[in-house]
Design a protein around this nucleic acid. Structure first.
Length: 593
RNA sequence: GGGGAUGUAGUAGAGCUGGUCUACAACACCGGCCUGUCACGCCGGAGGUCGCGGGUUCAAAUCCCGUCAUCCCCGCCA
């Protein structure tokens, strides 16, 4: 490109530049060859501009333009010209002008791309991922990455302004017993030992508080070796924040300020009040600790009404410690048997053994269960659920966990099908007062709901010894449109309490010392009260962009099988590398393909 | 580990109650024509192991079994 230096980006150009000589570079989006005249749409990161090759202008450039194909990389020198009368393209930002080319240089030719870059047709995701560098040429994808950049930039500006320091923490760290499965990295120098990639910088940020940095943040890569979902990747990014000498209220209001500024940055200003819900209330009313508050369809507990019912599915469940809850699907009394079968199958995914229903139709009540209910019980249900003619009442009877999972998901499914969701709304809610621990039936012990460093509420400290399950935590989650986008807590900052929690989690003193000795020791040297929060950057950007998967806001994401179709990672490695690390592969040769 | 959906030219689809399927048109591609197009147009052309393997059958893109890949979900994700 000797001697040719870009003078403008495509979208810099407007009527103001008419007559100017400009040098542009970019990709050929499309070529329209009219024989005696060739139009090329030149694309750069900022947009498109039409460049015109005409033998009247420049014979040599015109001849060369005959060879141009899609995605060729070119540089042109030409004059900005007003488009002739009647040829203005109102759909194009630069549609009032065009470039009459004097000189064309082909900087690189290109094979016909396997995915269409300018097309509206959607391409299979496997191909998009294999040719991710081409997929990322699409303006939609570039906009997603730009949005992500803007959010990150705003985070840094905001945090800096609030006196936070961005501090990096190690990627090679030690494995911790609680939490997700670790990604492990073998140590060559220390044969037989492993580093773990961080699930989050949790311990380091707490140590930074002990160090007296007071306000820390980091846009941190985190790694969790668990199965993937539309909103879960094995490596993802957290906006990680920690501060000293703050109470929960101050942290939450500072974070609201941050979130509002982030939204304003991307043009979303009509954000309502952040709702506050206790965990207990969220579970009671929505069956979820991350409820979508853009619509109602609240869960109603009718356990008491049907406790003595002849209908054994209800009364028997209540008797054995379960509950019966329902949703009033307004105006759905005309659902067909097939619709109802489908919903029943749907709640089955979440472990519900059935879905009872009462349809309040014009010609009376239609239901397979009302014959087992007394007049009084039926009236009680209808009253409790504020049901009227035209409504469909749907019930699940089971253990509270199953009822919550089934009905919270049913609630969301109904909201989508009944079009109750305003897609433009950004509805934030804080969920607070989480239980500190919950019983893990499989392992027969308590496990932390958040993580083991979360502080219990002061008034519940006495309960720690008697009934740990009743202890509430100084923890808070931020939920946006039914998606958990962040969570945090005040931390324990003294050794005694932290040791007590570890004991409740059934960690032996030896284990505690081995795994967390360094943290407890740090607390012996003057640890300030501290707390923080971490936001899932990918999820946040996904929601701001109105997207369905975080893959669309990650430049090079993995497939659901945690592979990279572009680089074909993970891959086999040389025997030599294994030997250097003192590792042996213990699977059959033929499986190692 | 489990449930579900999808897999047909480069791409996205139709065909899939088995037989004129020698697999269809579209977009893209290649060639020709065209000086005002902008999803340019017109004419012509090339392009397919119907994901892969096996089975049923006189006959399989179509039915059955297995397998692989991608996606959605359950489990899992402090």
């Amino acid at each position: 490109m000797k001697g040719l230096k870009r003078s403008h980006y495509t979208n810099d150009l407007s009527k103001a530049e008419i007559g100017a000589e400009v040098t542009l570079t970019g990709w050929v989006q499309r070529r329209r060859d009219h024989g005696g005249l060739i139009f090329v749409d030149l694309r750069d990161r900022f947009g498109l501009v039409q460049v015109v090759f005409s033998p009247d202008q420049q014979q040599e450039a015109f001849a060369k333009a005959e060879d141009l194909r899609k995605e060729y990389v070119i540089a042109i020198v030409g004059e900005v010209a007003k488009r002739p009368e009647g040829t203005i393209n109102p759909d194009l930002a630069t549609g009032e002008i065009e470039i009459n080319v004097q000189e064309l240089r082909i900087l690189d030719s290109a094979k016909t791309p396997p995915v269409q870059i300018d097309g509206e047709k959607k391409v299979g995701e496997d191909l998009r991922l294999k040719y991710r560098y081409l997929d990322l040429r699409r303006p939609e994808m570039q906009e997603n990455l730009i949005l992500r950049h803007k959010v990150m930039k705003k985070v840094r500006d905001f945090m800096d302004q609030k006196h936070f320091l961005e501090i990096e923490t190690p990627m090679l760290t030690r494995s911790t017993p609680e939490g997700a499965r670790d990604y492990l990295v073998p140590s060559r120098v220390n044969a037989g030992k492993f580093y773990a990639l961080p699930q989050s910088p949790q311990l380091f940020k707490q140590l930074l508080m002990v160090s007296g940095l007071e306000r820390y943040f980091q846009i941190a890569k985190c790694f969790r070796d668990e199965d993937l979902r539309a909103d879960r990747q094995p490596e993802f990014t957290q906006i990680d924040i920690e501060m000293s000498f703050m109470n929960q209220e101050k942290i939450m209001s500072l974070m609201e300020e941050l979130i509002k500024e982030l939204l304003a940055e991307v043009g979303i200003t009509d954000v309502g009040e952040f709702t506050r819900l206790s965990y207990a209330e969220a579970m009671e009313r929505y069956g979820s600790d991350a409820p979508d508050l853009r619509f109602a369809l609240e869960l109603v507990d009718i356990s008491e009404i049907v406790a003595e019912a002849e209908f054994n599915v209800f009364s028997g469940t209540v008797e054995s410690g379960g509950q019966v809850k329902g949703i009033n699907a307004k105006g759905c009394a005309d659902f067909s048997r097939k619709d109802l079968d489908e919903l029943t199958e749907y709640v089955g995914i979440y472990g519900a053994k059935g879905l009872a229903w009462i349809a309040l139709r014009e010609d009376g009540i239609n239901s397979p269960i009302t014959k087992f209910l007394s007049e009084e019980e039926l009236t009680g249900i209808i009253e409790e659920m504020e049901a009227e003619e035209g409504d469909l009442l749907l019930f699940v009877a089971d253990q509270p966990k199953v009822v919550a999972a089934a009905l919270s998901n049913l609630r969301e499914k109904l909201a989508v099908e009944l079009e109750l969701i305003d897609e433009d709304e950004f509805n934030f809610a804080w969920v607070t007062d989480f239980p500190l621990v919950e019983a893990d039936e499989e392992e027969g012990r308590f496990v932390s709901l958040h993580h083991p460093f979360t502080a219990p509420k002061d008034e519940d400290i006495e309960l720690l010894t008697e009934d740990p399950a009743q202890v509430k935590a100084k923890a808070y989650d931020l939920v946006l449109n039914g998606v958990e986008i962040g969570g945090g807590s005040l931390r324990i900052h003294n050794r005694e309490l932290q040791e007590q929690i570890f004991e409740i989690l059934d960690l032996s003193p030896a284990e505690i010392e081995e795994k967390f000795g360094f943290l407890l020791e740090a607390f012996d040297y003057g640890a300030p009260p501290h707390g923080g929060i971490a936001f899932g950057l990918d999820r946040l950007v996904m929601l701001l962009g109105g997207l369905d998967t975080i893959r669309d806001v990650i430049a090079f994401p993995k497939t659901q099988n945690a592979t990279c179709l572009l680089t074909e990672a993970p891959s086999n490695i040389d025997q030599e590398q294994l030997e250097e690390l003192n590792l042996e592969i213990d699977i059959e040769e033929e499986d190692l393909l």
